[in-house]
Design a protein around this nucleic acid. Structure first.
Lengths: 242, 242
DNA sequence: CGACCGGTTGATAAGAGTCAACATCCGTGG
DNA sequence: CCACGGATGTTGACTCTTATCAACCGGTCG
């Protein structure tokens, strides 16, 4: 019953038990089951098309999830944050349908797919948690679909900026923005130049302030109205889920 | 152990057992647990923003899943087909984040959310199945994101048409197309007129043939190349999952 | 028959993409 | 410590795709 050595609270995996040898023990303490990995910015956790032998739980850092078309066009499908499951689609498939690349120093726990199946079947509670996490991910995907399908460029950028806000907290603070213009564009189905222009506009209008990998929202109301949300509507955070 | 009265093979729910009173019995045979519903085309299974008291398993028919922005713009998020879970996001939320509307006569089984939790905790196997279905849905969402984020109008339409193909089967046959031009447009982030023009073009070029709620693919290779898929790549069916 | 709905087509406008130049930031090495 | 070089970000001029507005066709159903 020693707490998991990685010492992250509420970890899906750490909560799970596994019958190994004689006794039920915490998953984390079964030797060789969980591999803890550290990745530097730019490094890949896995590649689109590569064999999906592991699933990951993201413990710390930001990860870019992206898929490319054969001609090279790339779409950022989402940003993984602390607590997210990565490569879970590998659970029912042989190859990863997209790549995961560290944006910041990243800390993950990896589990072999086969082990994960065992863990899941033996831990209904964990499975329910996984269900919830997956559901949340589906939500985020649908939100991105809404952005791409029916918002204009300025609306998409505004919506994106709002999605940087952590759930409960209101704006005020300076927020980390681990994506380059290029990557924001690839996420929003726009071009780098367009994103730059829109952001420049927002800056001119004193709606936001940008500073080197950080953004500060100065006029929350205006940003929200520009994003096309209803006055009351609080856009669920699609980014900082942590 | 009487087979489920709805007589659909491989139904997630029917496979599940539930401890009710004294004995474990099939979920379907517990009176009052499953409500079977029949909906006419145009009718809603549930509304965006409405309270999510039930989850549904779609047994037969097509269902349109769509969400609207406060200003009325509507995005079709996907098409539900036989075997799909509907309103499952309600599992972790109080209100449905989108609406579900029958496109054809539709047959669903509904379960109260609270009952579903009980079913899931007691049936690890079912939970794994649900996981897989949810995963598949995530895939479909990501595929739509790819369409919206980096394909042009003609590419989107081609990609959409290919997504009508059932998984294993090759083209040849005439395929059902339960969506109006308007709805295709709402799904692809385009306008009715644009979809119409692109389809007209494909028809002129003898790539497809259209006839009253049906499409026939005449030139599979050309359609696939127009969609921007790699030569080998078979686009996973995002539509007729059944 | 006439109204309505879904679909098609045309002319024009607007939004975003493209290409190209330039500005900034930052790390590196002299 | 400063100067250079590459990567990132900004801005401008022009182009092209797709949206918009409008008319029209063909079927269906009162």
């Amino acid at each position: 019953m020693t707490p998991c050595e990685c010492a992250v609270a509420d970890c899906l995996l750490c909560e799970a038990r596994l019958l190994s040898g004689l006794a039920e023990q915490q998953v984390c303490s079964v030797p060789g089951l969980i591999l803890r990995e550290l990745r530097a910015p730019g490094e890949f956790l896995f590649h689109q098309g590569g064999p999906s032998r592991h699933l990951y739980v993201l413990k710390a850092g930001y990860v870019k999830l992206a898929a490319a078309l054969p001609d090279g066009r790339e779409q950022v499908l989402g940003i993984g944050v602390e607590g997210n499951l990565l490569g879970f689609e590998g659970f029912s498939q042989e190859v990863f349908p997209y790549s995961a690349q560290a944006l910041t120093p990243v800390h993950v726990c990896g589990v072999r797919r086969t082990d994960m199946t065992r863990i899941l079947t033996g831990n209904p509670k964990v499975t329910l948690d996984v269900l919830r996490v997956l559901n949340a991910e589906l939500e985020r995907s649908k939100a991105l679909i809404m952005d791409l399908g029916l918002r204009t460029a300025p609306e998409r950028v505004a919506s994106f900026l709002l999605s940087l806000l952590p759930p409960g907290r209101t704006w005020e603070r300076e927020l980390p923005l681990p994506l380059k213009r290029r990557e924001i564009a690839e996420m929003l189905g726009l071009r780098e130049e367009t994103v730059s222009r829109v952001i420049a506009g927002l800056r001119r209008e004193r709606v936001i302030r940008t500073r080197q990998g950080k953004v500060q929202i100065l006029d929350f109301a205006r940003l929200r109205s520009q994003a096309g949300f209803s006055p009351a509507e609080v856009p669920e955070s699609r980014f900082a889920t942590a």
